[in-house]
């Protein structure tokens, strides 16, 4: 195994492109190093992208935000303005492992590890995040929900790197929330995770909503039916119940060591209802 820590994106892409064996991008390492140790992957090249400035910054952009893929969970949670704008996304990153893990784990790594249970992903799907991807053939953009294909499998081509995450601008009366269910309070993998983002008109009518759902399918899902159940309503109990039912209906889980199919379907609705309630409360306070 070779370790490289280039200081430019172009150098990183070139290294990945020139490697004929197995190459992996190293961000926080909190998934990759575990996988190397467990013999799940045996890379010939590891490219550490934490020295690339563009990937390490949080900045305001066009009324929204741009977050570099190598920004850690701790850095996102310590960024007061970003956290105020996207509290649900920060809730998601705050649940990735321990505080030690959050010192290292990056938002890009959490996405590109392609676990259906990744905690930051449902909230980012709900947020409507657009990825910027760079590779040997230049840059392209992709909706966050379109990156992952299956556990461990992304839509990235050889030598492509997710560079940054664009969080869109939105109205003043808007917010988001993320909830997950785990048997323990911390240090656990989501049995179900739900992110809800919504935006209200001045009269309290829901103008826009998105719902992201994790750990109930081969990848985290955008649940459009759930969002539609909120849009145009006053986000009253009936609308939230309809939204919760749509979320449960979208869940396509399996039985595994972390939960049963039946349980996950039920909990998807419970968490959707609760997350929507929190997002609504936050939006109204904005």
């Amino acid at each position: 195994m070779r370790y490289e820590a280039p200081e430019s994106l172009d150098a990183a892409i070139a290294l990945l492109n020139e490697e004929s064996g197995t190459a992996r991008v190293l961000a926080g390492g909190t998934d990759l190093i575990v996988q190397i140790r467990a013999d799940m992957v045996d890379p010939d090249l590891v490219v550490d992208i934490k020295k690339i400035d563009e990937m390490r910054t949080i900045s305001e952009e066009n009324g929204g935000w741009r977050v570099g893929a190598a920004v850690t969970g701790a850095e996102m949670n310590e960024h007061a303005a970003f956290k105020a704008a996207w509290p649900g996304v920060c809730e998601g990153t705050d649940l990735i492992g321990s505080t030690q893990i959050q010192s290292r784990a990056t938002i890009g790594g959490n996405l590109c590890n392609a676990s259906p249970a990744a905690d930051s992903v449902p909230a980012m799907i709900a947020a409507g995040v657009t990825l910027t991807i760079a590779g040997p053939n230049g840059r392209r953009e992709l909706a966050v929900e379109d990156l992952n294909q299956a556990p461990g499998k992304t839509a990235l081509e050889k030598a492509e790197i997710v560079v940054s995450f664009a969080f869109p601008a939105r109205g003043a009366v808007a917010s988001d929330a993320y909830l997950r269910l785990t048997p323990r309070t911390e240090m656990d993998i989501a049995v179900v995770g739900v992110g809800v983002s919504l935006e209200l008109d001045g009269d309290g009518t829901c103008r826009a909503a998105r719902v992201g759902l994790g750990a109930v399918a081969i990848k985290a899902l955008l649940v459009d039916e759930a969002a539609q159940a909120l849009i145009g309503t006053k986000v009253d109990a009936a609308a939230i119940d309809a939204m919760a039912a749509a979320t449960s209906a979208a869940a396509k889980p399996i039985d595994d060591k972390r939960g049963t199919k039946e349980y996950r379907i039920k909990i998807a609705g419970v968490l959707a209802k609760r997350a929507a309630g929190i997002a609504l409360e936050r939006a109204r306070q904005n």
Binding site: A5, G29, T30, D48, Q100, S103, R104
Partner: peptide, 19 residues
């Protein structure tokens, strides 16, 4: 295995020595 690295606490089992 927690240690401080550049002012943050990390699991040293999840940091490469080369890093």
């Amino acid at each position: 295995c927690t240690v401080m690295m550049n002012g943050r606490h990390v699991c040293s089992c999840l940091v490469l020595g080369a890093e």
